[in-house]
Design a protein around this nucleic acid. Structure first.
Length: 259
DNA sequence: ATGTCCTCACTATGAGGA
């Protein structure tokens, strides 16, 4: 089973590029971030026509996550638990009903800039809620994964120019520590389980010729529960997508699971 | 680390977010 994550940076702007990638990559499940659309305006027919079940958790203008799945989805839930006041659409869960049922969580973790400031505080508190939800899910001792735009550069090797990011919310020590605490619950970061070394990125800024200079960062991640990590066959970054017509600033990352 | 892109607003430039 192939599961992908892709921050599309707006469904309207990616109305051609996203279906084209789906047709080529043929993921069984696609976790989308930054759909920037309310649920009613999401063009679900485009994906239903391709055999995907479509579940969205959108909001106007900003954020918004979705799950596309060729396998049936059950128990879809929307919103990260832990703060009834939080209006931002950044979390969606569903159980993918293949031969082995797998709980998938799609997430768009807050950017957190500028830092320090309220946005950084929100990022860190959101990560505490993520930690709590992860603990709950781990206690079931079943295969599950949490994937999406984490807005975290885990280590210096995950940036072309780490010195530039030192004071940024994506790389600040508190951000990295929160990500490590999450990992230390027992997750496997799928990409690093298979590929070591620098020069692997999932985001290149639109500005300053970042793509042409390969000035990227790796911020889109798959965290696998122990039972899910046992199923991991492969994890790759579809880098080539960034060089296409009207691309997102992120590219898809995917895992192949022995399911 | 700004040479851009995306969305929305009391429509066509500016604000806010990344």
């Amino acid at each position: 089973m192939k599961v992908a994550t892709f921050n599309i940076n707006g469904i309207k702007a990616r109305i051609n590029a996203l279906p084209q990638w789906l047709d080529e990559a043929q993921p069984d499940v696609a976790l989308l971030q930054e759909i920037k659309s309310v649920d009613e305006a999401f063009p679900r027919e485009i994906f239903e026509d391709r055999g995907y079940q479509v579940e969205t958790h959108g909001q106007k203008s900003f954020n918004g996550v979705a799950i596309l799945s060729k396998l049936p989805l059950e128990d879809v839930t929307r919103g990260l638990p832990g703060d009834a006041e939080d209006e931002q659409a950044r979390w969606i869960e569903a159980t993918v009903m293949g031969d082995t049922a797998i709980r998938v969580c799609g997430l768009y973790l807050p950017n957190g800039n500028p830092c320090p400031g309220p946005k950084y505080d929100y990022k860190l508190s959101w990560m505490e809620r993520l930690h709590a939800r992860a603990q709950e899910l781990l206690s079931a001792e079943e295969p599950f994964l949490m994937a999406g735009d984490y807005n975290i550069i885990p280590q210096d090797e995950d940036a072309r120019s780490p010195e530039v990011w030192q004071e940024d919310a994506l790389a600040r020590p508190e951000s990295r520590a929160a990500f490590r605490r999450l990992m230390n619950l027992g997750f496997t970061e799928a990409f690093r389980a298979r590929t070591q070394g620098p020069e692997h990125y999932s985001f290149w800024d639109y500005q300053a010729g970042a793509w042409n200079r390969d000035n990227g960062i790796r911020i889109d991640h798959f965290l696998l529960s122990p039972q899910c990590a046992d199923l991991l066959l492969d994890c790759q970054i579809d880098k080539e997508i960034r060089g296409r017509e009207k691309p997102s600033d992120h590219v898809p990352v995917w895992v192949d699971l022995a399911v």
